[in-house]
């Protein structure tokens, strides 16, 4: 109960924190991978670097799924009791969906062919 109260605010930031993390890790790994030549190492149809990026992206999508699920459950409880926290949980749930859509949106970039400069 108290956790539903205290965590409400945290979860409002959590969805997009995962997005931001996805963003920074993808950008960081992409830059590092280009430096270290991982894009020239083929693994099956794609390069090692691209597999890595897809994996990172998918892991963050999964994390967002978890955040969404937590918010949904908490919303059900708090809304049933008409607690003021229900508002925050509803907003957090919406934010987790928004963050997932934003992650899919930046994921579009993974389709771009030229992964490193020359």
């Amino acid at each position: 109960m108290t956790s539903l109260r205290n965590q409400a605010f945290l979860f409002m930031a959590l969805g997009f924190t995962v997005w931001a993390l996805a963003f920074s890790v993808l950008y960081g790994v992409q830059g590092t991978g280009c430096e270290l030549g991982w894009h020239r190492q083929p693994v099956g149809p794609l390069s090692l670097l691209r597999w890595l990026l897809i994996l990172i992206w998918a892991a963050h999508m999964a994390a967002l799924g978890w955040v969404y699920w937590r918010c949904r459950a908490a919303l059900a409880v708090t809304a049933a009791k008409a607690m003021p926290e229900a508002f925050l949980w509803r907003a957090s749930m919406a934010l987790s969906i928004t963050a997932a859509v934003a992650t899919v949106w930046i994921g579009l970039a993974l389709l771009v062919p030229s992964i490193c400069v020359v």
């Binding site: 579009l108 970039a109 771009v112 062919p113 030229s114 400069v117 020359v118």
Partner: peptide, 16 residues
């Protein structure tokens, strides 16, 4: 728009 832009941007990069 984004897809068009990525597609046209891709062809502007040096091919090496």
């Amino acid at each position: 728009l984004l897809i068009y832009a990525l597609w046209s941007g891709e062809r502007l990069f040096p091919t090496g």
